[in-house]
Design a protein around this nucleic acid. Structure first.
Lengths: 204, 204
DNA sequence: GTCTATAAATTGATAGAC
DNA sequence: GTCTATCAATTTATAGAC
């Protein structure tokens, strides 16, 4: 079905994603989306009835295509806890590197539409309970110190995602605004984050 | 100078802060701010020329009054690095607990107006360089393992802030949507975060 | 300093031709 | 399906009286 040229629906989705990501839902402009998609405003409403529905389409598409497959793949292909942490952070940070604005996009929707967002994740098949069990097993086996598994999970996500959310600020404040320095910093975190966590949860 | 009644300028700042925090900059309405301040729109423009300038005033005031004093106090009253980390996270998480929407507010503006946000922080007097120096000293003294100081700083902010940004999602996915459970989780992090970091940066 | 009234500019959405 | 033209509503900002 896909020729060498994106169809209109796809072009709109792409342009809309960029706009929503950069300016949030309230700040996004339908005119800007139309311009960047190379069409006009009327066509936006022809394909997606309203700004709200367009946002919803963009959002669920982004999650389904970009985030979930890779998360599932990592979680289901590795059983050793420390290796799981290393692989997960490595791939997660790689995905983020290729889509550095998505975290903001997600966070905005989480905060403006909590239920919709929660439902998408709950229905996504994310093996949350399995990860918790894995961590609990590792604790019982003495591989990990006693710790609430959810603390580890939240910490891992926090350490991975936040540097992208606050990029522009931290790049200015901590790296004199030098883009390359922050890129290198983010790159180093592909291994640093995992080691930081592992060091902290290994028993004495 | 302050009588038993707030002056207009102050009332505006307060109402504007609430509005910006709840709805972000684009979503905030000048009319709503005026209403909540008990005055009318024209007066907003009389005191603060435009929405942009009002936003800037609100934000830099919030940093100066809410964040800076407590950070400075901790930094200047404590020399031990680990104790510094403990006190800092405790107070930081306390501020966040009392203003749980601020992180989103900040992140939104960071991503929409990187330079202005960066400038506000750079001009805020936050003792970034001093913290870096403190960490470097601790590393030289062998109290902390060799690590890029900025990794620690970013990690500390990430671990503190992100659980508030993603609250609605993580509460649903990890805590079956139970508000009290997540509140307890956040509360436990007042000490957990510091210990998590300290464990990870202590030399073997 | 504070108000009412209104201008001026955006912007989401629709009608209707092709 | 795609366009031009335009509506209707919202919202920032200003003018001018008191």
């Amino acid at each position: 079905m896909p020729d060498n040229i994106l169809n209109t629906e796809e072009k709109i989705l792409e342009a809309a994603a960029q706009e929503f990501i950069m300016k949030g839902k309230a700040g996004a402009r339908m005119q800007e989306i139309a311009d960047n998609a190379g069409i006009n405003k009327a066509l936006l409403h022809y394909y997606y009835r309203s700004k709200d529905l367009l946002f919803e389409a963009v959002f669920s598409t982004a999650i389904r295509r970009l985030l979930l497959p890779r998360i599932l793949q990592v979680i289901e292909s590795e059983t050793d806890v420390f290796e799981l942490i290393r692989k997960f952070t490595a791939i997660y940070l790689d995905v983020l590197n290729n889509n550095p604005n998505i975290p903001f996009f997600i966070i905005e929707e989480i905060n403006k539409n909590p239920h919709r967002m929660a439902n998408i994740f709950l229905k996504s098949g994310l093996p949350v309970q399995k990860v918790i069990s894995l961590i609990e097993e590792a604790i019982e086996q003495g591989k990990i110190r006693p710790i609430e598994p959810r603390q580890i999970m939240v910490n891992l996500v926090s350490l991975s995602v936040f540097p992208f959310l606050g990029r522009n600020l931290m790049q200015s404040v901590l790296f004199s605004g030098e883009r390359k320095a922050y890129d290198a910093f983010l790159d180093s975190r592909k291994t640093e984050v995992a080691e930081f966590i592992i060091r902290s949860i290994k028993p004495h």
